[in-house]
Simulated scan of single mutants.
Amino acid sequence: MGKKNIAVVWGGYSSEIVVSEKSMQGIYSFIDKNKYNVYKVKIDHNGWFVDVDGEELSVDKNYFGFEIDNAKVNFDFAYITIHGTPGEDGKLQGYLDMLNIPYSACGVMAASLTMNKYVCNKYLKNFGVHVAESIILKPGDVYDINEIAETLKFPMFVKPNTGGSSFATFKVKKIEDLQTAIEEAFNETSEVIIESFIAGREVTCGCFKVGNQITVLPLTEVVTSNDFFDYNAKYNGQVEEITPARISDELTARIQQQTIKLYGLVEAKGIIRADYIIKDDIYYLLEVNTTPGMTVTSFIPQQIKAAGIDITSIFTDLIENELNKKA
């Protein structure tokens, strides 16, 4: 038996492509090259391509692989690290399901659900999960700025409903800025979510499952002098990230249990991250991220390091877990 061919799939059709490239580089570095042949596969508006020794070759979508020297190379597994469409919303998962190719992330339904922040948070609210009050705007909706202001109060967040939260996300503090923020968010995706602002301590918790064994990671506390955890805070170092978070063991345990519960409720797979705001010992879910950032300095690698676990062995376990299901 030769080595399995692993495709680290990155790119996408949104502004998040720049983040996806950073995550791809992280994941590529984490996967065991002695055990697998690892390829970088890019999906964007120009097509599907694989990097083979610096040469860009076309990916054949009929079998998810490529041809080199008149020989076909099939990918045995896809590690999806596209933030946004088509990798975080279930489209790519549906394609891989049809070809019976295992992949790292959750399936079509879970991806569609968690990608839609508004629907996901409303769904989870039914199970006693605390979430911020929110309003959804769709193309053609008639809305009243004053009514939104009255309902959610300032400050409030305006962001794309089905994008990541790195781009076109605004903390709006006065009514004069609300219309512009809504229009900017509509430029990024077709639906806009507006959420009430909760002042508190922000923490995030990673979680993954191999076989029947679920592992919940230490919490990271996010402290930024920026107005909120925006692109510059995430990727240009304008943030302090403290792992483990400076909260009580009891509150830590409750948030970890909540994260395990969420994992089951959304039918997650592989590695996820749940983000929270703590206010008066109540933790409000911001979002469930089923394709979390995986740069070397991202939260999940930080938390894995703090837990004293070898990240390469986790990736091997996650890949083997899916390959064995197919075997």
Rank of each mutant, 00 (worst) to 15 (best):
K33L: 04
S23I: 11
K173A: 02
N324A: 12
Y231M: 04
E21K: 12
I193N: 01
Q258V: 11
F229W: 07
D144F: 07
T259W: 06
I304M: 01
N116C: 02
N126G: 03
P139V: 09
F315H: 15
S165E: 09
F186Y: 01
A7K: 12
A181R: 10
I68R: 09
C106P: 12
N187V: 11
Y95D: 13
K4G: 13
R273Q: 10
Y79V: 13
Y231D: 04
L323S: 09
I260K: 10
D230F: 00
E240H: 01
V52T: 05
G140R: 00
D141F: 07
I304W: 00
P155E: 02
I17S: 10
E176G: 06
D317A: 15
G94P: 10
L113D: 01
C120G: 05
E176D: 14
A7D: 11
K326W: 01
L251N: 04
N62G: 07
Y36S: 08
S313E: 10
G54S: 01
I6M: 07
F167R: 12
K153C: 08
E241C: 01
P292T: 05
Y283C: 11
A71M: 14
V142P: 03
S58F: 15
Q302D: 08
N5D: 14
S165W: 05
D230V: 02
R246C: 13
V131D: 07
K159F: 00
P301C: 03
L251H: 13
I148Y: 05
V142S: 14
N324E: 12
N62L: 14
T169L: 13
G26W: 02
A245N: 07
L251Q: 14
L124W: 14
E150F: 00
D76I: 07
V41P: 11
V239L: 00
L96P: 06
K173W: 00
A268W: 14
V129T: 06
A233N: 04
K171A: 02
A185Q: 01
K4M: 07
I101W: 03
C120S: 13
L217P: 04
D280H: 04
A181V: 06
A132G: 05
T169P: 06
I247Q: 03
A110T: 10
A199T: 14
A149K: 08
T169I: 07
S29G: 06
M109V: 14
T162G: 03
L265A: 05
I135Q: 08
M24N: 11
C205K: 09
K209I: 11
I182Q: 08
E150V: 09
Q238A: 08
T85G: 14
K4N: 14
N5A: 15
E176R: 06
T290I: 13
V131G: 02
